[in-house]
Design a protein around this nucleic acid. Structure first.
Lengths: 144, 144
DNA sequence: TCGATAGCGTAATGTCATAACATATCGCCT
DNA sequence: AGGCGATATGTTATGACATTACGCTATCGA
């Protein structure tokens, strides 16, 4: 039952293909970021056999704002706010804990604004922004 | 107390080893970021033969604040402000042009402050921050 | 019915990074 | 001088991440 029309102007969790669904579910069930090969390993029993199948699914999920790539980790997470986070709250930032590996996604409008301002002044046509924080989360600090 | 002679309170281009010197010079001469293997290729004639020699040199250069790693590119640039940029102006941000490949390094204290504030509120012990902007620089936009 | 678009599956390859091991060099302390 | 620790070195092999190239299938609308 595919819609012939785009009813919403923001990205909805539209119909995903089987592979996309599998990958997204895998990411959702994970506590920490997964590499493409991690995902592949978890999905062997579901018939996935080659990295490309995972990368292709990830590409679409990211396009739709359902997943993110963490550049400093070469790994992927599902979007914190499953439905509509993507473009809504500006650029997402990620705090990655070196202890437990968990990732906290947040957005700071002021940061977004400052970076946009820099781009404006400089004449830089900003397309995409990566913000990643590394450190230890509160939990892990207590546990130490 | 490692050295008794810290003449300057900011990092000086202290004595580099031969390999470190070679790698730094290569980065300085480059217009755009270089991957470790790019660097290796340029230094074959100088006797470098294995990736590890380059990675080890890069590691030290980055420690000393003379070079940066661009996570979203898996590549390296020399620090824009050769002598003193490192810790001085807070976290560095990088604008990477998808046209010419050139990288513009800058620092925005307000951005640094906001991220530090988030970390403070959250109890996240911030160790390292990555900020990378992708887009087209003013030059390349004109050229189009 | 045709062609365009999008997805799927597989093999091969390309690119980035590190482990493990062996050796060398320097400064420093005794 | 001898010995120790810290640091750098060179080499081989391997691991980890990502893409190119090719061919097939399904769907949709002109």
């Amino acid at each position: 039952m595919a819609h012939s029309h785009e009813a919403h102007h923001h990205e909805r969790p539209r119909d995903l293909t089987r592979n996309q669904e599998l990958v997204l579910t895998t990411l959702n069930n994970a506590e920490a970021p997964l590499s493409a090969y991690d995902i592949l390993d978890k999905l062997r029993d579901d018939g996935l056999r080659a990295p490309l199948q995972v990368y292709r699914a990830l590409e679409k999920l990211i396009e739709h704002g359902l997943a993110h790539r963490l550049e400093s980790l070469n790994a992927f997470v599902c979007c914190a706010d499953a439905n509509c986070h993507g473009r809504a709250s500006g650029t997402a930032a990620f705090a990655i804990c070196s202890g437990c590996g968990r990732v906290d996604e947040f957005a700071d409008p002021e940061v977004t604004a400052r970076l946009a301002a820099w781009a404006g002044e400089t004449g830089f046509a900003l397309e995409r922004t990566t913000i990643e924080l590394r450190g230890r989360c509160a939990e892990c600090r207590k546990a130490a």
